[in-house]
Every structure is written in C-alpha cells, then in structure tokens.
Design a protein around this nucleic acid. Sequence first.
DNA 1: GCCAATGGCTGAACCGGTTCACTGAAGCGG
DNA 2: CCGCTTCAGTGAACCGGTTCAGCCATTGGC
Lengths: 335, 335
Amino acid sequence: MPDRRKRATIREVAQATGLSPAAVSYALRGIQTSEETQERVRAAAEELGYEAHPIARALASGRTGMVGLLCGSLEDYWQQSLAVGIGRALLARDRYALIVDAVGDPQRELVLARQLRDQRVDGLIVQPLDPSAPLWAELAETLPVVSIGDALAGGNSQGEVVFDNRWGVTLALEHLRMLGHRRIAVFTPTRASTPDRPADVHVNAEARRLDLEVEVVVAQQSLAEATDAARRVLEGPGRPSAVFCFSDVIAYGVYAATRALGLSVPGDVAVCGYDNHPMSALLTPPLTTVDWNIGGIVETAVRLVVDVIEERSPARRVVCEPALRVRESTAPATA
Amino acid sequence: MPDRRKRATIREVAQATGLSPAAVSYALRGIQTSEETQERVRAAAEELGYEAHPIARALASGRTGMVGLLCGSLEDYWQQSLAVGIGRALLARDRYALIVDAVGDPQRELVLARQLRDQRVDGLIVQPLDPSAPLWAELAETLPVVSIGDALAGGNSQGEVVFDNRWGVTLALEHLRMLGHRRIAVFTPTRASTPDRPADVHVNAEARRLDLEVEVVVAQQSLAEATDAARRVLEGPGRPSAVFCFSDVIAYGVYAATRALGLSVPGDVAVCGYDNHPMSALLTPPLTTVDWNIGGIVETAVRLVVDVIEERSPARRVVCEPALRVRESTAPATA
DNA sequence: GCCAATGGCTGAACCGGTTCACTGAAGCGG
DNA sequence: CCGCTTCAGTGAACCGGTTCAGCCATTGGC
C-alpha cells in the first residue's frame, strides 16, 4: 500500500498565522473575520498547500457535498444521458454525484435508496421504478428528494420534474392522424408501474378523441424482443399503417422487423419513436420521434435539489414539455 | 430544511451491551472479540437500528470506500458503458464509484484528478486523455491508480488494462484484405494523444505488411462532422472500396454520407467499425465491427484497483483482446 | 458618561467512529 | 508452580474539521 503523505491541517495554518483554528475556519469561509485576517489566512494556506479535508468537514458540518442519483436502469440510453448530464451539472456546482443503478429491480431500488441515505448524501435525485413505495415519504422527511418522471408517493418530496408525456403522446398521434393514418400500433415498454407513461389510459383517450383505431403492445425494451414483438404485429392480420413506439430503441426493433418482412418505412408502415436518441437521425430512414429536452430536465432537477440543500425555496413542481422532431420515417398513408 | 433525525451511535450500542465503544467497533467487524460477544453486539445493534456512520468511519480509518472514476469524455458511447459497468461492479463489492467527466479537456482532467484525490477516494480508475502528464506518477505514489486504455507516464501505477488495439486493427484490415479490398480509407477520431489508438503508426505498418493502400483521415467523433469528412473522401477522386472507422459512431457518419451520395453499402463501399455499439447490429446493413469485450475490461479494472486497496497484490498489466464481429456491411470488392 | 450593541477572535466541545497501548485472566509448556 | 504467550476487552487519543458560548475592545445612541 502506498503511504499517504500527510497534508497540512487547519491547526498548522492556525499556528502559522498565530490564530486559533476556529478563526482560520471562519476566515477561509469569509465570515466572522476582518478582511485583513482573511487575506493573511489565505496566504498562509496557500503557502502550506492547505486544503480542507472533505471528510472531516462532512463529519463536523453534516453535509457531504454529494447528491445521490438513483437510476432505475442505466441500460436505457436516456437514463444514461440524464446521469451524465446530472453528474456534470452537479460538478459545475462543486458537488459530486453518487450514481447508483437499480438495474431494473424495484426491490434493489429501495435498498440502494437506503444505502445512499446512510452514506449521508445531502440530497437525492431519483428516477423511480416504483414511485408508490412508502420509503420515499420516509426519506423525504430527512433529506431533500427530487423525482424525475413520476411523482413520488406521500407528496412531500422537495421537488418533482415531471414529463408531460400526455402531450408527447398527443403530438405523435396527431402527427400520424394528420398524415391520414387510422390504424396504429402502439408499442410501450414494460415498467413496474407507469403512471406517467400512460400506455393504456392516455393513449386510449387520445385515440378516441382523434377517432383512431389503436392496438397497444407491451414490449421489452431490448432490441431483440422488440423486434420479435413488432414482427408478430406486422405479420398478423389487419396490419396497421403506422406504429408509434414509446422508445426509440423499440422503433429500431420495428425497423429490423420491417426489414425482415420486406416492408418499407415509411411506404408500407410509418414509424414514430420517443426519446430522440442521437442515433435516430442516422437511421435509414431518419426516425421521426418525440424529444424531451434532456438538458432542461437535468438542469431543473439539479437546481431543485441544490436549492433545497442550500435552503433557498424552489418551485416544487416543474413540467417539461416534449417536442416532435419530424423526419423521414413518417409519410402520408397510402391505402 | 428537513430535520435530520439522529441515529444510534456506537456509544449507545456500547451502553446497551455494557461494553466499551472499542469492543463494539471490533465486534461488528468480527475481530478481537469472542463469538458470543459478537452475537450480543449484533443483536443490540439490530435492536437499536445502528449502522456505522460512513463519514466518521472514513475520517477515523482513512478509507472512504469510494473509488474515483475519471473519464475522458462521457459523450462516447463506450465510455458510458464502461462507467455504468464499473459503477455496478464496484457496488457489487460494497464500494461506490465517484464518476467525473473531463468532457474532453486534458487540463480539466488533471484538475479533476486532483479533486478526486482531495476527496480521499481509496483508489482511482482513469481512462486518460493525456497519459503523459507527470501528475499520474505523483498520484500513484499515494493512491492506487489503474489506467484503462493507455499506460500512464511514470510506470508506477498499480495496474493497467490495455486494449490490444493493434490486434483490432490487424483483424479489421486483414478481413478487408481477404475480401479483396486494396484501397482503404481509415477514419480515426481526434484525441489529445493516442499511443494506443495508433492511427498512423500501426495502421501504416499493417498496410505495408498487407500490401494495402490506405488513406488516414482524422475526424471528430461526432456524427455531423464524421458525415462531412466521409463525404469529402467518398466524393473525391480515387474513391476507396472500403472504409475502416476507428469508432462505430464514425461509421454511422459514413453510412449517412453514402446515403447522401447515393452509394450502397457494402456494394459500392464496404464499411468496418470499431466498438460494437449495440445499435450497430441494427443498422441497414448491420455493421461489421471490432468488439472489445467491455465486460472483461470493467471486471479487470475493478479487480485490479480493489486488490490494491485491500492489499492483495494483483497482476499489474492485463491486455484485453478484441474480436471481429462480421456482419453485412462488408462484402467482397466488386471492382 | 453609561449601557447596549457589534465585530473579531478564542477555547473547548463535538461529530462518530478507529486504533493503539495496556491490563487482567486464562492457557500452556516445562 | 512459574514465566510466557494469547485472548478479550478497556480507556484514551486521534482523525480534522465546525460551531457555540463567551470574552474583550470598540463604537454608537442618548
């Protein structure tokens, strides 16, 4: 094991300046001390190469400077983007993200949530698999909790960034309807509970409103399984003229299925995705998809949680509006 | 701010069992105490809901249980996969990954490396942008450092997981040669320094050995810029019959360029990538690409760093062999 | 000129564990 | 039965900051 060289402590800086450790502590944070003293202390600290020990500081002050990020499943492209973005946004605010991944298991999610609390993170951002768990309310009592995507049970979390997926669905379905499509298959990924990816409720409501005939198919969000599911639907009787996929990855599966069946996109079947994965613009043909401004979500979530940690009071609930990116995978119905 | 409920301390457990705090500390770690005492302490801890405070433990013991992961740029798909995998592998060993992202800036990389050290991570895994910086040697004196991809300057890091990219290049070029291609364009991403993505040296050596005519093009690893670069090469005189891209994303750019120019893959131009991005299997046509077993790299890097932290001595240098996945984007040369 | 308020700083407790030097008792060989 | 080692456990120092009560010297109001 390498021997960890000792670094200067606050008491050494105190000694060097002839002040008490307390005064040094204050001076370095620019409080309770005269300008002149602060300058002197800063100089001495610089000289000695002093840098406050984050662990000691965390123990004494009760704040670690870390924010937990609990992801439902980091397989998802968009959750990865979210995690990367949140990590950067926190770093820009001099905080660290402690990122953990429940790999799709709701039980594990709760275990990890407790572990993060036990690690004394200052706040928690969670993209919940199971928003209804009572644990969230319990955590929110002692810790700023911000949820992304779904509102948490208990209602006393410190913030929510919700996606207006209803609006996203409406955008996609209206787009397809305007192109003349009436029979539409909707592929939606499986999730433990999905109040805000309202495959059944909202899709059906919109279908009625727009006078569309929809068939909802639940598909694993993996390429292979999405391909199989799409194949079954497109081979079956009464093939839909358009497909709306609640995830770009599922749309890729649909592409693969059309290729296998010798169907063309958008000639035989129009395809609309959801996520605006960067790859989607590069497929043949480029995929029409719903984009949910990940940058905005990231910034909002981080702002909410940091505001609570630093005891400013934030807006508690922010809704992010998605937008439709029309590309070449959707075209007027031919039939 | 929520009031953080106080949790049981080790002294309370000591009180409850009639032992000293020291004895409790030992008992919970199963050392220096009798079986019977350990059982009694565990019961009391359970009863009181006691869980050791990680911050206090870190301060006293000098180990935080965290491993820093310093990524060159988390834009890259494969660096994301690496980060996700390393996060999981560490969690499985009861450690946390502190993931930071230099966003492609070598200066920033060094700043972040120092910050991680100051955060008192127990070890550091780095995928270096600038492997030649003297800082690495300095850090390695006081901290287990494992590098991924490139060996670090100074040579005293505790471990290296190197990719055998030479072998990957050989696999790809031999494959293209066997299909009859002789004029090959090689697209390689820009990086600060790339001893182990030896675009010039090794590609040229292999080209000579295999009697190939290659043109090396440096391209940004973004879709748009790769597309432009590919377009310029494919429009130019003496169009190559095959393209080898040192990143699947660049290959996607090549696909886009061929589409724009009305060329077909693999008919007019064969394309071979590098990364085996999961999307690559789903393109039209599915992309032939070099796969570097990310799972193996992840497991190896984590094992190396944890072994050093826990004072077992590891193999110091591990080479990961890539493999070629032949799909439909490469076909025999027609000319 | 007196009392209160303010500014600048100190000393000591505290955060909650770990670890080290030490002790008493038990075990063991001779 | 004695001296030596081993075992279980204790007490106190320690890790390196923060924070609170308190103190002295000014300053200001009236």
